[in-house]
Nucleic acid binder design. Structure first.
Length: 941
DNA sequence: AACTTCACG
DNA sequence: GACGTACGTGAAGTTC
C-alpha cells in the first residue's frame, strides 16, 4: 500500500528504547555463555508490548525503528565539542547493540540507520515525508529534541508514561509553539549534549525573549533594545555561538535515505524466524508467548547444561569442582597452547596471570603465564625457568621442556588483544605492564581486585589470598613455599616447573572463580558503574604513567645528601654535648629518657608501650621552655632540626636514588588503585605522593625531578577541591557564592565567621578560619581544633559553634551522613562510590573514629572520583600533543611536555580537569585548576 | 612485626 | 560523665 492520506506512520526511537531497557532492568545474562542480554530482553519485551498495544482502531499502517549509527555525525564537524560530555557506553551494553537490530528484523519491523546522521534526523525526514504525503505520524519517544517536529499531523507518544505529546504539551514544556522550539533551544543550550547556547539564559528566559521578539534572528538583530545589561551583552557577544547552537539543535529533515515510506508498511512477523531469534537469546517466557500467539510449537530450549555459575543469580549455590593442584596442565608446546587458546576464544573469556622474577614490573622478567578457562580447568606455560646457580659464575641454564618465549607470546598476543575475549586478572595492572613490555596491549579486561574494591572497600583487603579465603573458603599455596623468604629467597625462575605449575595455575583458577562470583554481585551491590567508569579504565592509564616514569637527577640528590650528612654530624655532636653523653638521636626511646628522666623535663607522657612520646609537637613544646629548662629547650630544637634533615636524607635523597631504573634513568612509581578506602590512589616503591614541599629545604628535593631535554614539567592542580565539594554536598550557599566569585575561601570564611570585612582581614584570623575549614572536612571536634590551633578547648568549641551557626548546612550534612552510615553501614560519594563503615556502631573511642571517617569519606572520595575521571579521559584528549601524563598527587597531575606544546597542553588538560565531574554530576560550584611549568617539579608547582 | 615518627594531600 | 579524638596514605628507623 502506498503511504498517503489515511495512513499512520509510527517512528520508534530505537536508542531511547535500548537505554531505557538497559537501565530499567537487572543485569540479565544469557545462561549458556554469560553474554549480557538484559537490554535486548527489555527491548524485545517493549517491541512485543508495542505490537500488541498497537492493534486497535488507531493502529499504525507503517512503522520503523530508527537507530543511531556510529558516534560521529555532521554535528561534530560543526562543533567538535558536540556531545563531548556523553559518558562512554557501558561495556555490558555495547555487545547488545547489534542484537537489538537483529531483534527488530526478527519482529519484521523496518530497521533503519544512516552513518553520519543521528536517529533524530532520520525521524525528522520521515516525519516530513509522512506529513507531506497527507498521513499521520506518531513518534514513539519522549526526547525533547524531537519536539520541534510536532504539529501538522505529527505528534509524539511517551510510551513510558503512556501519554501523547501534541502541540499543547510542547508549548507547556518550552513556552513556545513547536516551530519555535529550536529558537528556544538555541538560547537555552543543553548541558547533556554540550550545546553552548547563551550563558545564563535558560528555557524560561529564552521563551520570554522569543515570544517578545518573534524569532531568534529578530531577537539577535534587536538585542540592543534589551533592558537587562547582562542579558543584552550576552546576546550581542555570543550571537555566533547562539547561531551555532541553533544549527546543532535543528534536525535535518532532508537526510538522504534510500528507502521510501512504502517500504515501512506493517508486516506480520514470521513466527519461525522470530522464535528462532528469541530462543537463541534464551528468552523462555517471550518465546512461549509468541508461540501461543501464533499457535505454534515453541522450539526446544537450547542445551544449558554447561552453565557458567558466574552468570547465575544463584552462583553461590552451584557446586564448584574442588581445587585440585594435580589437575592442572603444564603447557610445553605450541599445539597444546593453541588448544587452550581456542577454548578461550570459544568461551569469550580467560583468566590470566603472569609469574616473573620481581615485583617491580619494570625490571621483572617473564617466567611463565597461567590460564584458566573455567573453575578447576587451568594451565601453566613455563617460559623462563632456569636451573643452577646464577651467582658468581652466572652458570644458570634454561630448563628443558619449555616453549620458546617469543613463540608463546606470538600465539598469546592475538588472544590477549582480541576485543571479543575478556581477560580476567587479579591486579591486572601488573600483568598489563609485563605484557606491554613485550609489545602486547591486553584488552578488554576485568580485575577481581578492583571488583572487590568497588564492592567491599572498608570491609577488608583485596589481595588474592584474603579474597580466596573469604569467598572461596580456600587457602592458596603460599608463595613462601616456593621461593622462601628473607635473605634465602629465590626468584621464581628457579622454582621447579612442576611446583610452579601447581602454584601458578591455582592463582588463575582462583581468579576465575572469584570473577564468577563477583560479576553478578557487582550489580547487586549497585557498584557496576563505579567499577566500569572509575576503577577498571584506570588500569591502562596508570600502567602507561608508571611505565613512562619521571626523570630524576641523581647528581642533584647526591649533592644534597652529602650536605645533609655533614649537617647531621654537626647536629649530632652538638646534641651529644648538650645531653652530656652521646646517644642515638634517631632513637625516640633514648631521646625520651634523656629529655624526661635525665634532664628533668616535666610533663613527659608515656604511650601504651611505656615509652615517652617525642613527636614533633612534644618537642616543639619543649623548645618553649627556655626559661625553666634552657638546656632541654636547646636540645629539643636541635633534635627537631636533625629529624627534618634525617628524614630528607634517608627517605628522599638516598632512597629515591635507589629507585632510579638503570635502563630508563627514570623513577617508576607504582600506584595502588585499591590502596585507600576513600578512592584515593596510593603510590609505592617509591611513594611519589609525599615528596616534600612544605618546608624550604624539603622543597628543594623537587629540583631533582626534571623534564627530559626539550621538555618542561607541567603541573595542574585543583584549587580547594574538597571544600568545593563540601560546599556542593552540604549545600552551603555562602561558601558556594564565595567560590563563584573567585574569593579567597579562607578569608571569606573568616569574614563570615568573625564579622571582619575582607579588606580588614589579618593573616592570623584567616589562619584560624583555614584550620576550621579543614577541620570540618575531617569531622571536626573541639579537641582536635584546639590542639591544631594551640588554643584552649573552650575557645575552639566556640569557633565550631559559630561555624555551625553561620553555615547550618554543615551540621545537617554531618548528622545526615552519620545517620546514613548507621543505617546502611556505608557512605557514598556523589559518583556512587561506596565506602563501608562497619565500625560506625562500635562503642567507645572507635565510634568517634568511625564517625569522622564517615563524614570525611564522601568528600575525600568525591574529590578522588573527580580526578580519576579526568585521568581516564586525559590520554584521549592529549593524544595529539607531544606530552605524557606522569604523576598524580591526589589533586594534582604532572605532565612532561615538549617546550612548544606547553601552552596547549595546559589549555587541554585544564579543560578536562575542570569539567571532569560532568556529565555524571553537575556541581553547583565551579572547579578551578591552577597550572605551573618549569624545568623541574620545583619550578612547576 | 610492631611501633614511632614524619613526608604529602 | 568519661572516654579519646582531627581525614587519608607510605617509608624509614628502632625496638622487641
Amino acid at each position: 500500500m502506498a503511504f498517503g492520506k489515511g495512513c499512520h506512520l509510527h517512528l520508534i526511537d530505537g536508542s531511547a528504547f535500548i537505554f531505557r531497557a538497559y537501565h530499567a532492568l537487572p543485569p540479565l545474562t544469557r545462561k549458556s555463555d554469560g553474554l549480557p542480554i538484559g537490554a535486548v530482553s527489555g527491548f524485545c519485551n517493549m517491541l512485543w508490548k508495542y505490537i500488541e498495544d498497537a492493534k486497535g482502531s488507531d493502529a499504525p499502517t507503517h512503522a520503523a525503528v530508527i537507530f543511531d549509527k556510529g558516534s560521529h555525525t555532521f554535528r561534530n564537524d560543526l562543533y567538535d565539542l558536540y556531545k563531548a560530555n556523553r559518558e562512554e557506553m557501558p561495556e555490558e551494553l555495547r555487545p547488545q547493540i547489534p542484537l537489538t537490530r537483529e531483534a527488530t528484523k526478527a519482529f519484521n519491523i523496518a530497521c533503519e540507520e544512516l552513518a553520519g546522521y543521528e536517529a533524530d534526523d532520520i525521524i525528522a525526514t520521515l516525519a516530513r515525508q509522512g506529513r507531506e504525503a497527507g498521513g499521520r505520524v506518531t513518534i514513539i519517544s519522549s526526547d525533547k529534541d524531537l519536539m520541534q517536529l510536532v504539529g501538522g499531523g505529527v505528534e509524539m507518544f511517551d510510551a513510558m508514561k503512556n501519554r501523547a505529546i501534541g502541540v499543547e504539551e510542547v508549548e507547556a514544556k518550552f513556552g513556545v509553539p513547536p516551530e519555535k522550539v529550536i529558537d528556544v533551544q538555541a538560547l537555552a543550550g543543553d548541558s547533556v549534549d554540550n550545546i553552548p547556547g547563551a550563558p545564563g539564559i535558560g528555557v524560561k528566559t529564552a521563551a520570554l525573549l522569543i515570544n517578545e521578539f518573534g524569532d531568534l534572528e529578530t531577537l539577535l538583530a534587536r538585542a540592543g533594545e534589551i533592558k537587562q545589561p547582562k542579558r543584552r551583552e550576552t546576546l550581542i557577544e555570543k550571537a555566533e555561538q547562539i547561531r551555532l547552537s541553533k544549527q546543532l539543535v535543528t534536525l535535518d529533515d532532508q537526510t538522504p535515505i534510500e528507502f521510501t515510506l512504502d517500504d515501512l508498511e506493517i508486516r506480520e512477523p514470521n513466527p519461525e524466524e522470530l522464535m528462532e531469534f528469541l530462543n537463541r537469546m534464551e528468552f523462555r517466557t517471550l518465546t512461549r508467548r509468541v508461540a501461543e500467539k501464533f499457535g505454534a510449537e515453541p522450539p526446544p530450549a537450547p542445551e544449558v547444561s554447561d552453565v557458567p555459575a558466574s552468570h547465575d543469580a544463584q552462583a553461590q549455590d552451584i557446586e564448584q569442582p574442588p581445587f585440585n593442584p594435580d589437575s592442572y596442565t603444564c603447557i610445553r608446546d605450541a599445539g597444546e597452547l593453541a588448544k587452550w587458546l581456542d577454548e578461550a576464544r570459544a568461551k569469550g573469556w580467560v583468566a590470566v596471570d603472569t609469574e616473573t622474577t620481581s615485583l617491580d614490573e619494570m625490571q621483572a622478567e617473564l617466567v611463565g603465564v597461567s590460564l584458566c578457562i573455567e573453575a578447576g580447568k587451568a594451565a601453566y606455560i613455563p617460559l623462563g625457568h632456569t636451573s643452577g646457580g646464577d651467582d658468581l659464575f652466572g652458570g644458570s641454564e634454561r630448563v628443558a621442556g619449555q616453549m620458546d618465549l617469543d613463540e608463546a607470546l606470538k600465539l598469546l598476543k592475538p588472544v590477549l588483544e582480541d576485543p571479543a575475549i575478556l581477560k580476567i586478572g587479579q591486579n591486572m595492572k601488573y600483568d598489563f605492564k609485563i605484557f606491554a613490555r613485550h609489545g602486547i596491549r591486553v584488552a578488554p579486561i576485568d580485575d577481581t581486585m578492583l571488583m572487590s574494591y568497588a564492592m567491599f572497600s572498608g570491609l577488608h583487603g583485596h589481595g588474592m589470598d584474603a579474597l580466596s579465603d573469604r569467598y572461596l573458603n580456600h587457602q592458596p599455596i603460599p608463595i613462601k613455599e616456593l621461593i622462601g623468604s628473607g635473605k634465602n629467597q629465590i626468584t621464581f625462575d628457579k622454582v621447579e616447573v612442576e611446583k610452579a605449575t601447581r602454584y601458578a595455575a591455582e592463582d588463575a583458577d582462583i581468579t576465575l572463580r572469584l570473577w564468577q562470583m563477583f560479576k553478578p554481585r557487582l550489580h547487586r551491590e549497585q557498584v557496576t558503574t563505579v567499577y566500569e567508569t572509575l576503577e577498571r579504565p584506570l588500569v591502562p592509564v596508570l600502567a602507561d604513567m608508571e611505565m613512562a616514569g619521571v626523570k630524576v637527577e641523581t647528581a642533584v640528590l647526591s649533592r644534597m645528601s652529602n650536605a645533609f650528612a655533614q649537617k647531621m654530624a654537626q647536629l649530632e655532636d652538638e646534641i651529644g654535648q648538650i645531653a652530656g653523653q652521646p646517644f642515638n638521636v634517631g632513637s625516640p626511646k633514648q631521646l625520651g629518657e634523656i629529655l624526661f628522666d635525665t634532664m628533668g623535663v616535666e610533663g613527659g607522657k608515656k604511650g601504651k608501650t611505656g615509652a615517652y612520646g617525642t613527636g614533633a609537637d612534644v618537642l616543639e613544646d619543649v623548645t618553649t621552655m627556655e626559661d625553666t629548662n634552657p638546656q632541654a629547650a636547646k636540645l629539643a630544637a636541635r633534635v627537631l632540626d636533625w629529624r627534618q634533615i634525617s628524614k630528607l636524607k634517608s627517605t628522599y635523597t638516598d632512597a629515591l636514588q635507589t629507585h632510579v631504573n638503570p635502563e630508563t634513568g627514570r623513577v617508576h612509581t607504582s600506584y595502588v588503585i585499591s590502596g585507600a578506602n576513600t578512592g584515593r590512589l596510593a603510590s609505592t616503591d617509591p611513594n611519589l605522593q609525599n615528596i616534600p614541599v612544605r618546608s624550604e629545604e624539603g622543597r628543594r628535593i623537587r629540583e631533582a625531578f626534571v623534564a627530559r631535554e626539550g621538555c618542561k614539567i607541567v603541573s595542574l592542580d585543583y584549587s580547594q577541591i574538597e571544600l568545593r565539594i563540601l560546599a556542593h554536598v552540604a549545600d552551603l550557599p555562602e561558601m558556594r557564592e564565595a567560590f563563584k566569585e573567585g574569593l579567597d575561601i579562607h578569608a571569606a570564611t573568616a569574614s563570615e565567621m568573625f564579622d571582619v570585612p575582607l579588606e580588614q582581614m589579618t593573616p592570623e584570623i584567616r589562619r584560624q578560619a583555614k584550620a576550621i575549614n579543614f577541620g570540618v572536612i575531617y569531622g571536626i571536634s573541639g579537641f582536635g581544633l584546639a590542639r591544631n590551633l594551640r588554643i584552649p578547648r573552650a575557645e575552639a568549641q566556640g569557633f565550631i559553634d559559630r561555624y555551625f551557626e553561620r553555615f547550618p548546612g554543615i551540621r545537617r550534612y554531618m548528622d545526615a551522613t552519620v545517620e546514613f552510615a548507621k543505617e546502611h553501614k556505608y557512605v557514598e560519594t556523589l559518583f556512587g562510590r561506596r565506602i563501608h563503615t562497619p565500625e560506625i556502631t562500635a562503642k567507645g573511642p572507635a565510634a568517634g573514629f568511625a564517625k569522622r571517617a564517615a563524614i570525611n569519606a564522601p568528600i575525600q572520595g568525591a574529590a578522588a572520583d573527580v580526578i580519576r575521571r579526568a585521568m581516564i579521559r586525559m590520554p584521549g584528549e592529549i593524544m595529539h600533543l607531544p606530552a605524557a601524563m606522569l604523576l598524580q598527587v591526589h589533586d594534582e597531575l604532572i605532565f612532561e611536555v615538549a617546550d612548544h606544546a606547553v601552552d596547549e597542553l595546559i589549555a587541554v588538560a585544564r579543560r578536562v580537569m575542570e569539567s571532569a565531574a560532568e556529565p555524571a554530576v553537575k556541581l553547583s560550584v565551579p572547579l578551578i585548576v591552577d597550572a605551573g611549568q618549569g624545568a623541574s617539579w620545583a619550578e612547576a608547582h
